Every structure is written in C-alpha cells, then in structure tokens.
Amino acid sequence: MKRILMIAAIGATVLASCGKSEKQVALEKQQALTAYRDSIKLDSFKRAAVETEKRKVEEQHQAELTAARRSAARSYSSGNTVTSTTSSGGVTSTQAKKKGWSDAAKGTAIGAGVGAIGGALIDKKSGRGAIIGGLTGAGAGYVIGRAEDRKSGRVQPKQ
C-alpha cells in the first residue's frame, strides 16, 4: 500500500510540474494579443493603401473626363464606327455602334405579333380583336424593350 501511495504522489508531482504556470499562461496571452494588434494595424495600413490607390485612379479618370468635355471635339461617322478626335493632345477614341435591332424594336415586333394572335383568338369578329391585341402588345413590348435598352446602356436614361 505504501508503494501505491508513493507512486501516486510521484505521479502527481510529475503532472504538477509539467503544467504551465500562471505567469507562462499570462505571457503567452500577452504575446498573442500583441501579435493580433499588429496584424490589425498591418491590415488597416493595407486597406488604407488600397483606398488611396482607388482615389487616385478615380481622380485621374475624372480629370480625363473633364478635359475631354472641355476640349472641342470633332466627330464623324464612317460605317459602323464613330471616331472622335479631340484637341487635347491628339487623343483618338473609337467606339463601335451597336448593330442590329434594339431591344425596344424587338419587343415591339414580338408584342405586336403575340397580341394580334391573342386578339384574333379571343375576338373573332372581322379582325377587330387582332388589331386591338396587336396595338396593345406592341405598346407593352416597346415599354419592356426600352427598359432593357436603358439597362444595357444602348439608350441613356432620362436626366
């Protein structure tokens, strides 16, 4: 029995000596807190640098737009492209016109067709329903297509 108690006491002593002291735990917490604060500072410096770079690019873009607006621009049309030449440093920009039907035109045509068919099926008296349905469908199709043109940038929204 003495041996068992002796082994248990030695085991308890060994386990107690292997544990970290409160000073070591406090020191590790302090080091972790310091490392965390440093990482936050570094992150905030990185974010500030990125924001500064974004501001510089935006200011440069605004300056270019202002210069382009102020300068006298001469535009001429050639086929499907529009070429603008400005007097500010001889900058030339080429923009391609969009080809094909606009969404408003497509919407009008599709709406008129569907409306005419629907109107003819509903009111079978000498084409009256087809005419009314075609006009209604064309109007609705135009409104929907025009909204799509504004979203895509083909038509500028009202100022």
Rank of each mutant, 00 (worst) to 15 (best):
I110E: 03
G129V: 02
G113L: 14
A120I: 04
L135E: 04
K124Q: 13
T136I: 13
G134V: 07
G139K: 04
I122G: 04
I122Y: 15
G113N: 06
A138V: 00
A120S: 15
G141K: 08
A116V: 01
G111M: 04
A138T: 00
G139W: 05
I132D: 06
G129Y: 08
L135Q: 05
G133K: 02
A140Q: 01
T136D: 05
Y142N: 06
G134K: 00
R128L: 11
D123Y: 09
A120K: 01
G118I: 05
G127E: 08
K125C: 10
A120Q: 03
G111Y: 02
V114I: 15
G133A: 08
I122L: 14
I131V: 13
V143Q: 15
G127C: 07
I117W: 08
I131S: 08
S126N: 12
I131L: 14
K124L: 15
Y142F: 15
A140T: 11
A112Y: 00
A120P: 00
A116K: 00
I122K: 09
I117S: 04
T136C: 06
I110F: 11
G139N: 10
G137W: 07
I117G: 04
I110H: 03
K124A: 14
S126W: 12
S126H: 14
R128F: 13
G115N: 07
A130W: 02
T136S: 13
V143F: 14
I132G: 01
A116L: 11
K124S: 13
G139L: 09
I117L: 15
G118C: 12
G129A: 14
T136G: 10
A138E: 06
G127W: 04
A120C: 12
S126R: 14
S126C: 13
G119V: 07
I131M: 12
A116P: 02
A120V: 05
Y142P: 02
T136V: 13
A140E: 03
G118H: 04
A138G: 07
L135R: 01
I122Q: 08
A116M: 10
R128W: 11
G139S: 09
D123K: 11
A130H: 10
I122D: 12
G137I: 01
K125I: 15
I122A: 15
G141R: 04
